[in-house]
Design a protein around this nucleic acid. Structure first.
Length: 585
RNA sequence: GUGCCCGUAGCUCAAUCGGAUAGAGCACCAGCCUUCUAAGCUGGGGGUUACAGGUUCGAUCCCUGUCGGGCACGCCA
């Protein structure tokens, strides 16, 4: 048997049940035939509840239907027996040989094991992180990065054509504030002292950027900086600038004073922050296919075009001098402004254009990985898509809840205003990339995450990352002490693998592709983390109960083939999560 | 106040979109290194799934209400 014609047992049996059900009743396309893995060995390997689903429409006893289904079930070379149990469950027992033969498939597929055609090559875009390039990424962004990257890997393995995208908010007010902040720090280096606004960016990295500009250009960008406080109240001259209006006045003044040079500074800080962000993410094992500029939507006229389009469809109206979108027509709580009284488009306007652009680029499906604080934003974006004649179901939002850091059992502070927040870079330095990536996806993403820094750092049995990696290293160690070629194991006779622990392990290995598929379907990377934890657990148990390097050749080869398969799956699974699989620990 | 999410073992969390006796890890207790890595393993006690009803063959999951927690409610991005 070659690897290519080896079936996925689950889909194989579902097909058999489909035939059986159409033999005993008229085919019903809406009926979903489901096969679940059993929890107890006495219930076999797979269980089907079809008989109970059919009980009502057929007006018959579930067990009676189960009998009919079993009688109509086409023969399968992989089935040992079929039983009816409980209220009408049909339990399937795999032949030992079917499980044993599966090792050939794993060892031949190697890195591709776990891949499937589930996604049918559909073009899918995953947009994630998309943090404002106005400062270092913090631990909150880290979770979005880890989940987005892992989800992308999982979707790719499940047969989707995945494109990873970072939306760069380079057009907004925040970038202007950062530019102003940097210029003020730069002026300080030139001994021009202005009050530094409380609501400007306070972080040390701003001073660092100012240093870079100063070192390269000395006083070139000082200009008539004394005019900066024009139009501000007297209090702002002496004490501090602390309102948004005053900040905006400063930005307007800076633009006037700097003229053409404002664009240079704006571009400098953007490039600097984006470069830092890209570098940070790369070291975190997260890379993007596209860095999409928000500004480009304005430059190409797409924002204006999109708003016109909505207007033509009569979804816009004027009120209080602003232009509003009727998002309440699509279930939103209230209508939303797309163009302000001063003529400027809102962030929402460019976001509509951005999402329109996504679908114009030909993606079948678009996933946005958003922080949970954005959940109120979903209705209006989907509403806008619907208004533009697009199916809102093609946009899916994966909400990621916050990660709260714990140190010494206490919450670690994380305030962005003071500039003393924990950055992703600091987290990586403290616990390492592997632990950070694993911990971030250990929980369901829409669940709050308590990130225990001490646990992530601990090189002990408590740490699930090491636990899984240790299993991998152990297999490597055993195989290294066997003086044979691992590639030859793919052809070994597997019949000797017949103990309960071995058969359970085999079934666990068979589950891997289904787990990947489920994780893709549910946008749930945590399923992979849990699976790996369980697989490692079963392996460690096996390791302690059974000796692998035995003199009997058939037994030796079969057991080594089994642990080599385990190693392959640990490697593939950790790879999906962006965690390394070390040979030694 | 309104909307969304959540409430499962002492703690942190699972539970395959309604399935069989609700599972792990940590913590606690008792054991296992002269043998392939003890960052490991074996065994043990731990539950009215916040509470009260409802829907059905069957509910942690769906519906209603109550209590408790988180987030969001700008012509910010």
């Amino acid at each position: 048997m070659t690897s290519s014609d080896y079936p996925n047992f689950k889909t194989h049996f579902i097909e058999l049940f489909r035939e059986a059900s159409s033999a005993i009743t008229t085919p019903d396309d809406t009926l979903r035939i489901e096969l679940t893995r059993t929890k107890q060995a006495s219930h076999g390997d797979y269980s089907c509840n079809l008989a109970m689903q059919l009980a009502k429409p057929l007006h018959k006893n579930p067990r009676e239907i189960a009998n009919l289904l079993i009688a109509a079930l086409p023969p399968s070379p992989y089935l040992e027996k079929v039983e009816i149990a409980g209220a009408g469950f049909i339990n399937l027992f795999l032949k030992n040989s079917a499980k044993q033969q599966y090792l050939h498939h794993i060892l031949q597929s190697k890195n591709a094991f776990g891949h499937s055609g589930f996604g049918q090559g559909k073009k899918i875009q995953v947009e994630f992180v998309s943090a404002n390039p106005t400062g270092p990424l913090h631990v909150g962004h880290g979770r979005g990065a880890a989940i987005g990257a892992s989800l992308s890997n999982i979707l790719a393995a499940a047969g989707f054509n995945v494109s990873r995208e970072f939306y760069v908010n380079d057009a907004g007010r925040q970038m202007d504030i950062l530019t102003l902040s940097t210029w003020l720090r730069y002026l300080e280096l030139n001994h021009v002292h202005m009050p530094f606004p409380a609501n400007a960016y306070q972080g040390e990295y701003v001073k660092t950027m100012a240093q870079l500009i100063f070192q390269a250009h000395t006083d070139r960008y000082v200009h008539q900086s004394a005019l900066l406080l024009d139009g501000l109240p007297e209090t702002a001259h002496t004490t501090a600038v602390d309102t948004d209006e005053q900040l905006d006045q400063l930005i307007a003044n800076a633009k006037k004073i700097l003229g053409q040079d404002y664009a240079y500074l704006h571009n400098f800080v953007l490039t600097e922050q984006l470069g830092d962000c890209r570098n940070d993410l790369m070291e975190f094992g997260v890379e993007f296919d596209t860095w999409f500029s928000e500004q480009s939507l304005f430059d190409s006229g797409l924002v204006a075009h999109t708003i016109q389009l909505l207007n033509k469809k009569h979804y816009l109206y004027q009120q209080d001098g602003a232009t509003w979108f009727r998002s309440t027509d699509f279930g939103d709580e209230k209508d939303r402004v797309v163009q302000r009284e001063n003529g400027q488009f809102t962030y929402f306007a460019s976001d509509i254009a951005y999402h329109l652009n996504k679908f114009e680029r030909g993606f079948d499906q678009v996933i946005n990985v958003w922080g949970a604080d954005h959940h109120g934003y979903i209705a209006r974006v989907k509403g806008a898509l619907q208004a533009l004649g697009l199916d809102p179901a093609r946009l899916e939002i994966a909400l990621v809840q916050f990660a709260v850091l714990y140190r010494d059992g206490k919450k670690a502070s994380m305030s962005t205003r003071s500039g003393e927040f924990v950055t992703l870079r600091e987290l990586r330095q403290e616990v390492g990339k592997d632990a950070a990536r694993f911990f971030y996806v250990m929980r369901k993403s829409d669940q709050h995450l308590d990130f225990d820094l001490d646990l992530a750092k601990s090189q002990s049995n408590d740490n699930p990352v090491y636990y899984v990696q240790y299993a991998h290293a152990r297999v490597c160690s055993v195989l290294a002490q066997w003086d044979g070629d691992v590639d030859d194991l793919a052809e070994a006779d597997m019949q000797a693998l017949s103990s309960p622990v071995e058969l359970a392990l085999l079934q666990k290995l068979i589950d891997f592709p289904d787990t990947v598929e489920m994780a893709a379907k549910e946008f749930s990377p945590h399923l992979i983390a849990f699976y790996l934890r369980e697989l490692a657990s079963e392996f460690h148990s096996y390791y302690n109960s059974t000796r692998f390097l035995v003199p009997e050749i058939p037994l030796l080869h079969a057991r080594l083939a089994l642990i080599a398969s385990i190693r392959q799956i640990l490697n593939n699974g950790l790879g999906l999560l962006g965690v390394s699989a070390p040979d030694k620990m």
